[in-house]
Write a protein that binds this DNA or RNA. Structure first.
Length: 283
DNA sequence: CGTTGAACCTGTTTGC
DNA sequence: TGCAAACAGGTTCAAC
């Protein structure tokens, strides 16, 4: 589930525990979600973790060794991925697929029950390619840029919000929550949304993401931060997973539909559907 | 350019 | 209780 706020929370929590640490040895479990497990096993030992950075929904750890060229460990958590440090004495969780022993005596462990995540060791060039295919950072995108990437698109607004080539970091929860707050139906065609409403969407989205980061993300079932704590933003959800419950603004029952292949929650009164807007205009 | 549905995997919840 | 279906924060690919 991890979307931008959850990944940001995890990365900030991880940073003090891993920067400056050197990896002594690596043990792998299932590797079908890794691009190059053999290289990871061979090259990671001896590497010093210099920095950790979030990029949309994924993050990367910059690695250095005295002899070989710098590399980057790419990590995408998928739906159920998690990375944290533990004392070696702590029992290993089920579905632990990577364990790295560190020079401070602790272990960095990656767990992922569904294995929808992705781990890869990239050269700077390869990593640049991955970065380039990722869309704009929604947290600080400008009004002009937001308009440029959405204004001419004839796709549904929710499909575009979820498209990681357009924005990096928005997932199903924050897409629905931002659309409810901006009163836009998820199936509206982006190019037909008035620029002033798109601007409202941008502002509300940025406010939402910042607030979610302050509350350390949304924990639906298994998301936890680097210290094992759940987030609290799920308490602020207004539509996500609220089918049949009253809208926080108008009390009308929240509906669920499928847009872009994903469950989409919306208020039928506050977020009028494209077809009902069309018939209203004809009258 | 777009959309849809299936696939990848495990676990939990819901309904009969 | 038991079992099957539906569903889950994600991405990718083929087919239309």
């Amino acid at each position: 589930m991890p979307e931008l706020p959850e990944v940001e929370t995890l990365v900030c929590g991880l940073r003090p525990h891993i920067t400056g640490r050197t990896i002594l040895s690596v043990r792998l479990g299932k590797t079908d979600f890794m691009d190059n497990p053999a290289e990871i096993e061979r090259d990671l030992p001896g590497c010093k973790m210099v920095s950790i950075t979030r990029h949309g929904k994924f993050f990367s750890i910059a690695l250095e060794t005295p002899e070989s060229p710098p590399q980057r460990l790419f990590v995408h958590l998928g739906m159920t991925g998690h990375l944290a440090t533990f004392a070696p004495s702590e029992p290993e969780e089920k579905h632990t697929h990577l364990v790295a022993s560190l020079d401070d005596g602790r272990e960095l462990r990656y767990t992922d029950p569904r294995r929808f995540g992705r781990i890869a060791l990239f050269s700077p060039t390869e990593f640049q390619k991955v970065l380039a295919s990722n869309g704009a950072e929604p947290l600080d995108i400008s009004s002009v840029e937001f308009q440029r990437v959405l204004g001419a698109r004839h796709a549904r607004i929710k499909a575009l919000l979820l498209d990681q080539h357009v924005f990096g970091g928005i997932g199903n929860i924050y897409a629905d929550e931002s659309l409810w707050r901006a009163r836009i139906h998820p199936a509206r065609i982006a190019a037909r949304i008035h620029p002033s409403r798109l601007e409202e969407l941008r502002r509300t989205l940025q406010r939402l993401l910042r607030e979610a980061i302050l509350l350390r993300g949304s924990s639906i079932s298994d998301y936890r931060d680097a210290d094992g704590q759940p987030g609290r933003f799920q308490l602020r959800h207004r539509v996500y997973d609220r089918e049949g419950k009253p809208c926080f603004r108008c009390r009308v029952a929240i509906r669920r539909t499928t847009v872009a292949g994903r469950s989409s929650y919306f208020c039928p009164r506050c977020q009028p559907s494209p077809s009902s807007r069309r018939s209203r205009r004809q009258r």
